[in-house]
Structures are given as structure tokens and as C-alpha cells.
């Protein structure tokens, strides 16, 4: 319990720190949302000045920060200049889409990496394992961007996959299975790109962690007790190798999230990626800060989840933490 409270404290501290930094940097960056209006001769300088006052852009930084914090506490997270609405609801719609993409990709990536990594560790050094290692090494050197672009090309050339968006235009007219199928079709390529971007990393770690555990005397002992190969691998070896993998799980959430932002932009997935890019280009200050903050929150959440998992998976950590 005490441990949870401490973790929570850390999280709050981190969020405050990140928001402060985001605030400072976005403010220090040259220009603001209303600069472009100034170029428009139809808008009177007075109007712009009035807008600036309305949005408090002429107030000193600490005061703006204080106001922003109070707006966060009210559930608005500031105000978007471009959308003329509070930031949070805007962000939430996109974040949902991003989460849909990353969580599916993550489940899929781990779902592939675990059995494949275990299999590879079991056949360590044999031909299939070596081929797999070669494959992961090759995938690792391809940048995410190239991967995403490659899939975009496939989508265009094959014509089977949509080249962007999350659903088709006629989505609403479809029955539930049709809706699901349509969504799946749209998700397929971005998710494949994402999965392929993290899979090599996961696979290599699973393989290494398992290979180390497979040499442990307790596995030989369990084998000596006549425990089946399958149980041995999944019930004995995997939990024993879990610690580094769980830490990696926390880390993989971050990697996937940042990878997702990129893939979303390239493949026009209506998630946080394109939204944030647009906001940054338009200097839509509070949207940018909100996006950064939300990403941080996801990261913290992911790592926290990993910690909880670790706590649950390893009784030795439980006793340590309680001492």
C-alpha cells in the first residue's frame, strides 16, 4: 500500500515536471497561434490584441501556468485556439483511436514474441533459430518510417487495403460484423507496421531471457520429475524469465506509443499523431501541451502496470518491498 502511494507520488511529480517543461518550451518556441492572423489584412490588429488578451497570451508564464492547472483540474486541459473548444474532449477522441491501435499492436506483438521466442530459445543455435535471429536483426535495422511508408505503398499498389482513415465512408450503413470487418481492414496495415517495429526487440529479449533460464538447475530438476515439455516451458521457464520481460513490457508501451504517432501520420490514422502534428504546426499551444501530457500519462500508466505485474509475478520482490 505504501509502495502504491509512493508510486503515485512519483507519477504526480513527473506529470507536473513534464507539464512545466512542455509549457516552457512551447512558450519559448518562436511565434504563436495568432501570428498568422496578423498577416491577414482583413483582421484588425485590435482584434488580434483582444484575442491575445482573451487567451492570456500576454500574461506572464507563471500566471498562465496557474490558470492552465486550474483548467486541468476542471477537466478542460486548456482551450484549443483552432477548434475553439476545450482540449480534453478533443484529445480524448484521438487518444481512443491511438490506444486502439497501440494496445492491439502490443497484444499482437507479445502474442507472437512469446511463443516464437520460447521456441527459438528451446532450439538455441540450430538452423531455424539462426534464421529467426537473422530475420529479427534485419527488421531491427529498418527504420519505422521506412516500414510505414512501405506498407503505404503496398496499400496503394494492391488496392485491397484502404490508404488511410479508420473507417470507410459508408461505415454507418454497415451491420455490426461489417463494421468490425471494415475497422479491421483499416487497422491491418498500421498495426502490422507497428508490430513489425517492436517485434524484433521483444523477440530477442524473450529468447535471451528464456535461454538463460533454460539452463537453470530447477528446470533440470523439474524435467527429472517427469514434468512435460510444455508445462516446463510455459509454467516453469516463462514465469522464471518474467522479470526482465515485464520491465521490457513497460518499455515497449513507450516505444509503441511513439512509433504509433509516426505510423498514424504516415497512414492517416485519426489518432493523436496527426492531431498533434497539426497542433504543433499551428502553434495550438494547449493542444500540444495536452498531447504531451497525455502521452506521458500513458507511459507512466504502462510502467506502473509493469510494476504491478512484477510485484504480482515475483514473490521475492513482494518481500523486499514490504521490508
Amino acid at each position: 500500500m505504501r509502495y502504491l502511494l509512493r508510486r503515485f507520488g512519483h507519477a504526480v511529480f513527473l506529470l507536473v515536471g513534464v507539464s512545466l517543461l512542455a509549457f516552457t518550451f512551447t512558450t519559448l518556441a518562436p511565434g504563436n497561434y495568432f501570428d498568422e492572423m496578423r498577416l491577414n489584412p482583413q483582421i484588425a490588429p485590435e482584434t488580434i490584441a483582444a484575442l491575445r488578451t482573451q487567451y492570456e497570451l500576454d500574461r506572464p508564464l507563471p500566471i498562465r501556468y496557474a490558470h492552465w492547472v486550474s483548467s486541468v483540474l476542471h477537466g478542460d486541459m486548456g482551450f484549443s485556439f483552432a477548434y475553439n473548444s476545450p482540449v480534453l474532449p478533443l484529445l480524448w477522441v484521438r487518444a481512443r483511436n491511438t490506444l486502439l491501435l497501440t494496445i492491439t499492436a502490443m497484444l499482437l506483438a507479445w502474442g507472437i514474441a512469446l511463443p516464437l521466442g520460447i521456441w527459438s530459445a528451446e532450439h538455441l543455435g540450430r538452423l531455424p533459430d539462426r534464421l529467426l535471429s537473422l530475420g529479427t536483426a534485419a527488421l531491427m535495422v529498418i527504420p519505422d518510417l521506412a516500414l510505414a511508408l512501405g506498407f503505404l505503398v503496398i496499400a496503394v499498389k494492391s488496392g485491397r487495403f484502404p490508404t488511410g482513415g479508420m473507417v470507410s465512408l459508408h461505415f454507418e450503413s454497415l451491420a455490426f460484423p461489417g463494421k468490425l470487418g471494415d475497422l479491421f481492414l483499416h487497422m491491418a496495415l498500421p498495426i502490422t507496421a507497428l508490430v513489425l517495429s517492436v517485434l524484433p526487440l521483444l523477440l530477442r529479449h524473450v529468447r535471451a531471457a528464456l535461454a538463460e533460464v533454460l539452463d537453470a538447475p530447477f528446470l533440470l530438476a523439474a524435467e527429472g520429475h517427469g514434468i512435460s515439455r510444455r508445462t516446463l516451458l510455459y509454467r516453469y521457464a516463462l514465469p522464471a524469465a518474467a522479470n526482465p520481460l515485464i520491465s521490457l513490457f513497460g518499455f515497449s508501451i513507450g516505444t509503441l506509443l511513439s512509433g504509433s504517432l509516426l505510423v498514424e501520420v504516415v497512414m492517416s490514422w485519426p489518432g493523436l499523431g496527426p492531431f498533434l502534428l497539426e497542433a504543433i504546426l499551428a502553434r495550438d499551444l494547449y493542444v500540444v501541451i495536452g498531447g504531451v501530457l497525455l502521452s506521458t500519462l500513458f507511459l507512466i500508466g504502462g510502467n506502473f502496470l509493469a510494476d504491478l505485474l512484477l510485484y504480482w509475478a515475483d514473490p521475492r520482490i513482494r518481500t523486499e518491498a514490504s521490508v
Partner: peptide, 25 residues
């Protein structure tokens, strides 16, 4: 066949009890 014999007909006790047990079970 071996798997059926191991632990059922012939069992083995290893030397290092701290190493021969699964640490998190």
C-alpha cells in the same frame, strides 16, 4: 516413456535445494 518414468518410478534429488526449486512458485 522417459517422462513417464522420471519422477514416478525413479526420482532425482539434486544437490542444491535453493537452486532445484522454482523461485517464484
Amino acid at each position: 516413456e522417459l517422462q513417464r518414468i522420471r519422477g514416478k518410478r525413479i526420482s532425482l534429488i539434486f544437490q542444491e535445494p535453493s537452486m532445484a526449486l522454482h523461485p517464484t512458485m
